[in-house]
């Protein structure tokens, strides 16, 4: 994966060199996770225009997408991202800790804990919801087949797992009950894909499963673009707030001479234009007043909890649930 990215990077640099006129342009590399692809395609166009007006400079913005974990590892291993826009703060923490490309307190540098937009986990079901799935408790019923990726390899799947856990712990009152609950839930999972996009494909193209646990934006994308009229979105009364943070990688931008550009890029995500685009691409904006009301109407109200509230932050959630020997491993232990 790293190699293909390096190759892409090389290819891009080569085309840049060959195109001559673009030679002097500065380039920003935004390394992100899978479902943000469409958002940043739109956003980059707007930002390039904005920067041209503001600073009179032509710039390029290059985007790289893939499973969040893989992308993080690529950055740690040397992919020179000026900015990262990832699925969980834990991934950026890892970049700070293992590669020391930015300070450990990075999350306090931008408004709203560096979260220009957030998302949540919803259910995507077959048209008409034949299995009558309304809430998390319905996922463990006999005969309900649930599609969710492997939380060891997918950030989205970790949100799914924690959401189910927190629901059960609250509803049934204990950690043991929560463990039983997720165990039952994963008994209903017939295929464990390695990433969120893989699970979406399994559910939509392969026709496997009664319900897909999905990023809200991914669920909308599925409904609008992949199979109109074939699926319904079910929003459970309570779910997890998916906090998808952004950060400038200090060491890289200093080296590339792109600090002002990278900072302006992330700031622009918080601007009315950026907020509007986020809502348009099914992300819940930090400042909804800038988004268009039709876009906002698509987000139903639900009770959202955060990883910090329920699990004491990502490092602890990771250790307790997803590291080797954690609760997820116990789910499958024979």
């Amino acid at each position: 994966m790293k190699f293909t990215q390096a190759l892409k990077h090389l290819f891009f640099t080569l085309t840049l060199l060959l195109s001559g006129t673009a030679l002097a342009d500065r380039t920003l590399l935004n390394v992100s996770y899978d479902p943000t692809r469409e958002l940043y395609q739109d956003f980059n166009k707007e930002f390039i225009k904005y920067w041209k007006d503001k600073a009179g400079e032509d710039v390029n913005v290059q985007q790289s997408h893939g499973g969040g974990g893989k992308q993080t590892r690529a950055v740690i291993d040397g992919l020179e991202a000026d900015v990262v826009t990832l699925a969980l703060s834990y991934d950026i923490d890892q970049i700070a800790e293992k590669a020391r490309l930015l300070p450990k307190d990075w999350q306090s540098r931008l408004p709203n804990n560096s979260l220009p937009y957030t998302s949540t986990i919803v259910f995507l079901v077959r048209k008409g919801n034949p299995k009558g799935i309304k809430n998390w408790a319905d996922l463990v019923k006999d005969g309900v087949s649930v599609i969710t990726p492997n939380p060891k390899t997918s950030g989205g799947a970790r949100y799914n797992y924690l959401a189910a856990w927190a629901f059960a712990e609250k509803s049934y009152g204990s950690k043991d009950a929560a463990k039983d609950f997720v165990q039952k839930l994963y008994k209903n999972v017939p295929v464990l894909d390695s990433g969120a996009r893989g699970s979406t494909t399994t559910f939509i193209q392969r026709g496997i499963g009664d319900v897909l646990l999905a990023w809200e934006n991914e669920a909308f994308l599925a409904i609008n673009e992949l199979g109109e009229g074939k699926f319904d979105i079910v929003v459970p009364p309570v779910s997890i707030k998916a906090e998808t943070p952004v950060a400038v990688l200090d060491k890289i931008v200093k080296k590339n001479g792109t600090q002002d550009l990278a900072e302006a890029y992330l700031q622009y995500l918080y601007s009315p234009v950026g907020q509007k685009l986020a809502a348009k691409h099914f992300y819940r904006p930090y400042q909804p007043e800038h988004a268009s009301p039709e876009d906002l109407k698509r987000f139903p109200k639900l009770e959202l909890f955060t990883v910090n509230e329920k699990f004491g932050g990502w490092p602890q959630a990771q250790k307790e649930h997803f590291d080797d020997g954690g609760t997820f491993d116990q789910v499958y232990a024979p």
Partner: peptide, 17 residues
């Protein structure tokens, strides 16, 4: 493969994990 632990999980997947 289906990628279920203990059943259909191949070694390369475990390495990736």
């Amino acid at each position: 493969a289906g990628n279920m632990p203990y059943i259909s999980e191949i070694v390369p997947l475990l390495i990736i994990t």
